[in-house]
């Protein structure tokens, strides 16, 4: 395995934003950050916090307002366009729809900065394209047209194109926006593998807090007009995450790293069980507004019994005993109890 040459990106006193009617409006100021070899960095922030603007500025797709982006200690503006394209690749949410464009041809466009004016692919170019298709798991789709693919496959094609560009730095602006959760994880893992194996640096803006906190090496958090950086765990512990994302009604669970909507809990229920069924039953009970508590004042209790084909849930309400065959069945009874209690 061949590692990428050492490379670095440094953001120095960077201020990014956009020009509007002759005025420049900065969305992020005083950004001082450094990217090391082989790091997967997740860029987090609320909508409109300037994530895209920052990424576009680092990829030189738009000018910076002040400060510098330095790639290998040379200011970005001094890089010839083609050389820069051999160092930084970019993936956005933009998906290419075409009845005629083949997956292979699209991914091969990643070789643009490496080929001559004819665009003719050499042996190595083709190898890189095939490996990129393989890495994102779409080599069987190589001869399909873009419009024959699902959204997830299209997005993977766009990522394969960036891999085919074979740059030490990959910048991705919400590449998983249209994907379902398993695919989001899959894409993140795939990028991580690229970064761990080849020492590529990956900067990815992502909406899914859980994935970012679980998977990223480092978080860049857009907060109060600038960027705070740190390991995910650091940012949880020093309350940075909660400062940014905790403004709504959702509560941050410091143990699981998840946000939860607080619920009114007005009935107590006794529930003691272990195993995966117990965990999910617990979740259901919480969702229905029950506080799990096994002291004497508990009105209700639930137990799980294993039977031949699965499980039953037994609800004891005073003298009354009800057996349910699914959590849904249980939840219907509990719901009516809850409503009666309110009424």
């Amino acid at each position: 395995m061949q590692n990428q040459n050492p490379h670095s990106i440094e953001l120095q006193n960077l201020s990014v934003g956009f020009a509007q009617g002759g005025h420049s409006i900065s969305v992020l100021k005083n950004v001082n950050l450094k990217v090391r070899n082989g790091e997967t960095i997740a860029l987090l922030g609320l909508n409109g916090s300037g994530k895209s603007t920052l990424l576009r500025s680092i990829a030189r797709l738009q000018p910076v307002l002040s400060g510098e982006v330095r790639l290998n200690d040379v200011e970005l503006g001094k890089w010839p366009k083609k050389d820069l394209a051999r160092h930084i690749s970019f993936v956005s949410t933009e998906i290419i729809n075409s009845n005629n464009l083949q997956v292979f041809d699209l991914v091969a466009l990643g070789r643009f900065p490496h080929t001559t004016w004819t665009g003719k692919l050499g042996v190595d170019d083709k190898k890189v394209v095939y490996n990129a298709l393989e890495a994102v798991g779409i080599s069987s789709l190589a001869y399909k047209k873009m419009n024959e693919l699902s959204d997830g496959e299209k997005q993977r094609t766009m990522i394969a194109r960036a891999l085919a560009q074979d740059t030490p730095i990959i910048i991705l602006d919400e590449p998983t926006a249209f994907l379902d959760l398993p695919h989001k994880y899959e894409i993140f893992r795939l990028l991580q593998e690229q970064s761990r194996t080849f020492g590529k640096s990956i900067i990815i803006a992502i909406h899914d807090l859980n994935i970012a906190l679980q998977e990223a090496d480092k978080i860049w958090l857009a907060s109060a007009g600038s960027i705070v950086e740190g390991a995910p765990e650091d940012l949880i512990l020093n309350q940075s995450i909660i400062k940014v994302f905790g403004q709504g009604k959702a509560e941050f669970d410091f143990v699981t790293g998840n946000f939860k909507m607080p619920r009114k809990q007005n009935l107590t229920i006794c529930f003691q069980a272990k195993g995966i069924e117990a965990e999910w039953t617990k979740k259901a009970l919480e969702r229905l507004g029950f506080q799990i508590d096994c002291n004497l004042s508990a009105d209700l209790s639930v137990t799980i019994n294993q039977i031949e084909k699965g499980f039953t849930w037994v609800l004891i309400n005073g003298e009354k005993k009800t057996t349910c065959h699914s959590i849904y069945e249980l939840s219907i009874i509990l719901k009516t109890l809850n409503q009666n209690n309110h009424g």
Binding site: F104, G119, L121, V128, N131
Partner: peptide, 30 residues
């Protein structure tokens, strides 16, 4: 230049001949 893309696809098989150990290797310094 006609059919550069196509011919690129067509001769790609030979390209993989000596990369048995580098199936997942996307990084190649040409």
């Amino acid at each position: 230049t006609v059919g550069v893309f196509q011919s690129a696809v067509f001769s790609s098989q030979s390209a993989t001949g000596n990369s048995r150990d580098a199936i997942y290797r996307v990084s190649v310094n040409p």
